[in-house]
Design a binder for these strands. Structure first.
Length: 170
DNA sequence: GCCAACGTTGGC
DNA sequence: GCCAACGTTGGC
């Protein structure tokens, strides 16, 4: 059973994720300027995060686009998984900071999905997330968390959409 | 398989 | 720049 995904009748519900990007490298505005408002989520070099992309994410899953390592860390917009995982091209590029000499085309180590931004939102800051009732158990807020891709529960997703002014609840 | 050393993350 | 937390590496 994939993480965060549950059977309901004969259908799987959507799963939800939070994905961190450093805006100095790729901001939500950068993605909005891409063709189709989507980008390959390159550069992940952590096996747990990779496995979420390879095994658990499905096209259409909801994504919270999070700005990290910056002056205003927080959720910058909403996005969705736009294609299944494929090998991360940067691992083969010796000029890239993400180059991995142990990867080969025949046996790639790193995979990524593509992510399409669906809505830029106000910045929902880390501090505000910490102060929001119902989000106490968010993985993002757990002490010592460093993973760049984290599952989000349907309940957390709904609360966050409400904070962002969408009463449809997703 | 253990575990110390080392590197990275990321908020502050 | 600091530093807590955690993942990875590599000797044994």
């Amino acid at each position: 059973m994939p993480t965060g995904r549950h059977f309901r009748g004969t259908h799987f519900t959507m799963a939800y994720w939070l994905m961190k990007s450093e805006p100095a490298e790729v901001s939500i505005d950068d993605v909005l300027q891409q063709p189709d408002r989507s980008i390959d989520w390159f550069g992940v070099r952590n096996y747990q995060a990779r496995n979420y992309m390879m095994r658990d994410m499905q096209v259409g899953d909801g994504v919270l686009f999070y700005h990290s390592s910056c002056a205003q860390p927080g959720i910058a917009g909403l996005a969705e998984v736009a294609r299944p995982a494929l090998p991360d091209e940067t691992q083969f590029d010796s000029a890239s900071p993400y180059y991995d000499s142990k990867s080969t085309r025949a046996r790639p180590r790193w995979f990524n999905v593509a992510v399409r931004v669906t809505r830029k939102t106000r910045l929902l800051s880390l501090a505000e997330l910490r102060g929001t009732a119902g989000l106490q158990d968010m993985r993002l807020l757990a002490r010592g968390n460093r993973l760049s891709i984290l599952p989000v529960t349907p309940g957390e997703w709904k609360i966050i959409l409400r904070c962002l002014g969408d009463s449809s609840g997703g």
